[in-house]
Design a protein around this nucleic acid. Structure first.
Lengths: 248, 248
DNA sequence: TAGCCATATTATGTATACAGTCAGTATCTA
DNA sequence: TAGATACTGACTGTATACATAATATGGCTA
C-alpha cells in the first residue's frame, strides 16, 4: 500500500499534535520559545484550526504553557520539577494500590498482572540484558502499571494518574532506557520487579498501607535512575525529554 | 457605565465556558446528554469556534466527556466517584503539606496562613453561625488551602491540585454551605479549624508524616459532610453540583 | 547616543463556509 | 411482521477570511 501524503485514518488534529509533540520533545524548540500558529501550520501542513486544537491539548498535557497575551510557548522544567512529578506519580499509584487492597480484587483480576510479571521475569533472567529486552521491559512495565491502576476501580483516580504520567519524564518507564547504559542496570530492574511482586502480594492480602508504601518507594527508583544518568552523563540521547530541563 | 450586550473585556471563549459550565452545574442538562455545538452556539450567542474551545476546556475540567464518534456529552458521576475525588484531593494536599514540612518554610511564609486562621476563628466564635459567616468561611477556607498548597513550592503539584479541585464537589469548600443547614454545623467547622491549626503546627515543626496525615483526614471531613447531607435530604439546593450524580 | 513614540507587520481571536461522516428514519422485501 | 437497506438530515472536522491587539522596528527628539 502506497503511503499517502495525508493519512485520512487519523484526524488532522491528532497528526498536528503528534508532530508538535515530537518537535518539542526532540529539543528542536528551546524551552521558553514561543511557538506561533503559522509556524506550526508550516511544520505540520494542516490548517490553523487543528493546529490550535493541538496546541491546547499539548498545554493540557503539560508540554506547553499559555502566554498571557495569547499563544503558547515551550514549557521549561527544573530538575526539581521532574523529581516532584515522579513523587507525585508514585503517590497517586500508591493510592491506587491502597484502593485495590482495601476494596479487594478477585484472583480473576490479578491473573493478567501475574502473567505480566512472569513475562518480565523471563526478560530479566538474562545477564546481561540486551537492548531489545529493555525495549520489551518498557512495554511490559507500562502494561503492569496500567493494569495496577485499573485495579483501583476508580475512574477519577485513573484519569488523574494518566495525566500525571503524560509527561515522559514522569511516566513509569521514563528512565528505563537510560538505565540500559548503566552497569547497575540489571540490579535496578531486579529491584523494580521485586517491588512489583510485593505490591501484588500486598493487594492479595488486603494490606492497604503496605501496598501504598511500596508503590511510593517504587516510583523513587525512577528518581534514583535520573540522578544516576545525570551524574554519568552517558547516553543522555536516550532521554529526549531532558531537552526541556533548564540549567540541568 | 451601561452594561453592553457583549462585554469586550473577556474573550468569547471564556464567556462561552462560563455560560456552559453554569448550564451543566445547574442540572438543566442531564448527565449523558449530548451537547451539540450549534445548541451551545444558540445558548451562548458566540460562534462555533469559541464554543468549541469552551467545550474542550470543560472536558479537560472534567465536566464533559468526549464522545468517540465526535462531540461531547455531560459527564455522569456516581457517589463513589465523588468520595474518591475527595480522597484524591486529600492525598494531594497531604503531599503538599509533607513537602512544606520537609523542605521547611520561613515564618514569613507562614504569616498569611496564621492570619487567615485568626479570621476564621473570629467567624466560628459566634454560636450559632450566621449564613453570612458561612459564606465568609468558604472564601477564607479556599484561601487557606491555596496558601497551604503554595507552601509546597512545587509547581507540578500545585497544578495537579488545582485540577483535582476543579470539580465543585471535590473542592475544599464544596460542602461547607451544605453544612450550614445541619445542626452539627458549628461542631464540624470547629474540627476543621483544628485540623488547620494542626497542619500549620506540623509544618512549623517539620513533622512531614503528621502534616500529611492530618490533611488526608481533613479532606475526609468533606466526605462525612456529603453523607450527612445526602442522608438528611435537606437543603440539597445548596449543592448544585449534585445534579451530576446518577442514582444518587 | 539613548530613549521614546509612531507606524507597520504579524500575531491571535473570531466568524463562517464547505465537506465528509455518522445516525436516525422510513420504506421495501422476505 | 421483522429485518435490512437506502436515503435524508444533522453534526462535527477543517479551512479560510476578517478584525483586533500586540510586538518589533525604525526614525525622531532630547
Amino acid at each position: 500500500m502506497a503511503e499517502r501524503e495525508t493519512d485520512r485514518s487519523v484526524s488532522q488534529t491528532v497528526r498536528a499534535q503528534l508532530a508538535l509533540r515530537d518537535l518539542v520533545l526532540s529539543g528542536r524548540l528551546r524551552p521558553g520559545e514561543r511557538i506561533s500558529e503559522l509556524q506550526a501550520v508550516e511544520i505540520t501542513g494542516v490548517s490553523r484550526t487543528p493546529v490550535r486544537m493541538a496546541l491546547v491539548r499539548l498545554e493540557e498535557e503539560g508540554l506547553l504553557e499559555a502566554i498571557p497575551s495569547g499563544g503558547f510557548m515551550v514549557k521549561a522544567f527544573s530538575e526539581r520539577d521532574i523529581l516532584d512529578s515522579i513523587e507525585l506519580r508514585g503517590t497517586l499509584e500508591g493510592l491506587a494500590a491502597r484502593f485495590a487492597a482495601e476494596r479487594g480484587v478477585s484472583s480473576r483480576d490479578l491473573e493478567p498482572l501475574k502473567q505480566c510479571l512472569d513475562e518480565i521475569d523471563g526478560l530479566v533472567r538474562q545477564d546481561p540484558i540486551s537492548v531489545e529486552a529493555f525495549s520489551s521491559y518498557v512495554a511490559l512495565n507500562a502494561r503492569f502499571h496500567a493494569l495496577l491502576t485499573e485495579l483501583s476501580r476508580s475512574s477519577p483516580l485513573v484519569r488523574q494518574i494518566d495525566r500525571a504520567s503524560a509527561l515522559p519524564f514522569a511516566s513509569p518507564s521514563g528512565f528505563v532506557m537510560a538505565q540500559s547504559a548503566l552497569p547497575e542496570a540489571r540490579q535496578i530492574l531486579l529491584i523494580a520487579q521485586d517491588h512489583h511482586r510485593v505490591v501484588v502480594d500486598a493487594i492479595e492480602n488486603r494490606e492497604g498501607a503496605r501496598a501504598e508504601a511500596i508503590m511510593r518507594e517504587h516510583a523513587r527508583l525512577a528518581a534514583r535512575n535520573l540522578r544516576l544518568a545525570l551524574r554519568n552523563r552517558t547516553r543522555l540521547d536516550l532521554l529526549p525529554a531532558l531537552a526541556l530541563v533548564t540549567s540541568g
